[in-house]
Every structure is written in C-alpha cells, then in structure tokens.
Design a protein around this nucleic acid. Structure first.
Length: 362
DNA sequence: TTCGGAAGGG
DNA sequence: CCCTTCCGAA
C-alpha cells in the first residue's frame, strides 16, 4: 500500500501515525478537500524542512522577511522531496515546477531577484475554521470559548501533533509575531471580490462542528477570559493587542526567525496582501483569539510547539539516505497520555482545523 | 534561472 | 486535484 522505495527496514507508516485507530487527520495531508489524495503536499514538506535545524543548510527562512525562504541547496531539497514522494527522479527543475504551480494558488510567490528564494503567502493560511467565527462581529458574541473551554483539558492534538501542526501553528504565530511586532496598517486589502469565486477550494466554513476553535481544541483556554475580544478584533487590530499581546519568547520562535523580531515597520504589507485583512473581522480568527488571550497563551502554545528535537524525529527525512517515507514523530508517553477520552472530540476538532490555504484561483 | 504550457498519472 | 515529466522561451 505504501511505497517504500527502499524501505531500509523502516516502517512505512509509523504507529504514531495513528491515534487510537484514527488515521492521521486529513488536513495534515491536504490543505483542502481533495478526495482521495492524502499525500503530503509540497508546501507541507517545505514548511516541515524549514522547521528543522537539521536542514538549515539546505533550506532556511530568510531573515527579515517573514515567510520568505531560501533554498540553499536545491538538489538536496529535491532529493529529499523525491525521497518522500518516492520519486527518485525528482530534481529541482521538477520540484520548482511544482512550486510554480503554487503561484496561481497564491500559496507561494517568487522573490524576484533572489535566487532560489520564495515566499509563503501566509495570509492565505487561515489556520482555524470556525463557523461561528464567521459571523460578523456585532454585539458580544457570547458563544464560543465559553462552552468549549469547559471541555476540560483536552490537550489533545499533542498526540496528533505532527510536524504539520507545528508548521501551522508556527505559521500562525509568525503572523501574529508580524502583527504584534508592528502596528497593523490599513493594509492594502485585496479586492474583496478578488479572483476568488472559486467554488472549488473555498473551505467549508460552515462546519457543523462548532465548539472547537483553535483555542478550545488546543486548550488555549484561558482561565476565564471568556471570549476573546472578538469584537475588538481585526480592524484596528492593534487595539486588541496593545501592550499585552501574547509575547512569544525566544523558544517559541522558529530556529530561523530568531533575533530580529520586528526589524522595523513595514514589511508586513506583502505578508497580508490579499488577506482582506481586518475588514470583515473574520480573518484569522485564531489570531484574534490568541491575541485576546493575553500572556499565557504563548506558554500554552509553546507547549504544543515543543519540537520533537527531544523526541524521536531525527530519522525522518534523513534516514540512511535512502528509502522514502514519511516523517515520524514519536511523542513522549507523558504527552501521549494527555490524550484522554477526549480524543474523539479532539479528532473531530482537527477536522475543523484546516489549513485553507490556496483559496482559489483567479 | 525562471516561467508556464501540455500531457499524463494516481 | 496535485503534482511529475518534458520542454521551449525569456
């Protein structure tokens, strides 16, 4: 079923892939619905590499530009990708073609002038899919957080936590950092009507599964902050996170986006280009959520963001140099034990947790 | 180097 | 759909 091109005795599908009979959540392999296919996508893979120091010499974030990364060793990246996809013939030429397809989807774009440099369009990453959140923020919506938070320490996804999750959370954070670091400008929103239209990937915002926003699900539950300043969110975004925005300390930062938090104002324009930022108040719900959770949120997030450095991830992409496989992450039992009977709930939450990136073609 | 069309596969 | 493969053009 699974290819092991050369399975050097490495299990093709690590057991940790299954959370009590639950297959790895779909979203981990496809950002959007795409029946059938549950293969890892290139951008997932790229982000994955970007987060491992082991590959810093191969591919790394470009300092100073959130979302921008440089492929320092094209051949190597291609090799790794080929290994993962069991495509020994993979090469940078082909890989880059695939990357180019992301241009239209606006997942990526090229940083002109800089060799092998691309940039993620994080603005397209709407980490959370929370139906309720989709409502216009009129009067204080007393809906979310309240109940969900009651769900108890669902710490869930930890078990499910994949590089992807890291990735996504990271991305999410990157955005927040960006926002937090600087004042949100009116931002050049993109034409609302924009090319969207895409019936295709427009993520199903209307999930039946309400109660599990990033927060409740990931246990960002803040003691009793009730709901995030949802109403106070986006637009003047800055106002909702004045002095008390979640400060993510170093450890929470990706290895490659260290020292310089906010190089300076500006920059983020591009980041949010096309995000139709604040205008409708329904962007990045997760963000606002976190923003409203004050300090502490960071800590919790941090927990989630525990990198497998200390765990077992090493072998994944670099293994003996051959064999294609998926990354495997073994979670410390302690962590595993965290997933309790809430799993069920958790997993369903995950379903809601979508990386709806490629929002559509023109 | 980068781009994007075309065809094909799973 | 999401690439993979091939390729001509810029």
């Amino acid at each position: 079923m699974h290819c092991h091109c050369l399975g050097e005795g490495i299990p093709p599908v690590p057991s940790s892939y299954w959370i009590s009979g639950l297959a790895f959540p779909d979203w981990a392999y496809k950002a959007e619905s795409s029946p059938g296919s549950r293969q890892i996508q290139l951008w997932h893979f790229i982000l994955e590499l970007l987060q491992k120091e082991e590959f810093r010499h191969v591919i790394a974030w470009q300092q100073g530009e959130y979302g921008e990364f440089v492929i320092k060793d094209p051949d190597e990246v291609a090799r790794l990708w080929g290994r993962r996809k069991c495509k020994p013939q993979m090469n940078y030429d082909k890989l880059s073609r695939a990357l180019r397809y992301y241009y239209n989807k606006r997942i990526l774009h090229k940083t002109k002038g800089k060799r092998f440099t691309y940039k993620f369009n994080f603005s397209k990453l709407i980490v959370v899919n929370y139906p309720l959140w989709d409502m216009r923020p009129p009067p204080p919506p007393p809906l979310l957080l309240g109940a969900p938070a009651m769900y108890g320490p669902a710490l869930v996804p930890i078990g499910v936590q994949s590089e992807l999750l890291h990735t996504i959370l990271f991305t999410h954070r990157a955005i927040m950092e960006q926002l937090a670091g600087q004042r949100s400008p009116p931002s050049p929103l993109e034409p609302p009507g924009d090319k969207k239209g895409s019936s295709s990937s427009e993520p199903r915002l209307g999930f039946p599964q309400a109660p599990c926003l990033l927060s409740p699900c990931y246990h960002f539950q803040n003691p009793r902050n009730e709901l995030p300043p949802l109403a106070s969110l986006p637009p003047p975004l800055a106002t909702s996170l004045p002095n008390e925005r979640p400060r993510f300390s170093r450890p929470f930062l990706p290895p490659t986006l260290p020292e310089q938090q906010s190089p300076g104002p500006s920059k983020m324009d591009s980041l949010f280009a096309g995000m139709g930022l604040p205008t409708d108040g329904k962007v990045l719900p997760g963000f606002s959520l976190l923003a409203g959770m004050g300090p502490g949120a960071g800590e919790r997030l941090r927990f989630l963001s525990l990198r497998p450095e200390e765990t077992e991830v090493k072998q994944d992409l670099e293994v003996g140099g051959k064999g294609c496989q998926r990354p495997m992450v073994d979670f410390p039992s302690e962590v595993q034990s965290l997933k309790t009977r809430e799993e069920k709930h958790a997993s369903s939450c995950l379903e809601t947790f979508k990386a709806m990136w490629s929002l559509d073609p023109p």
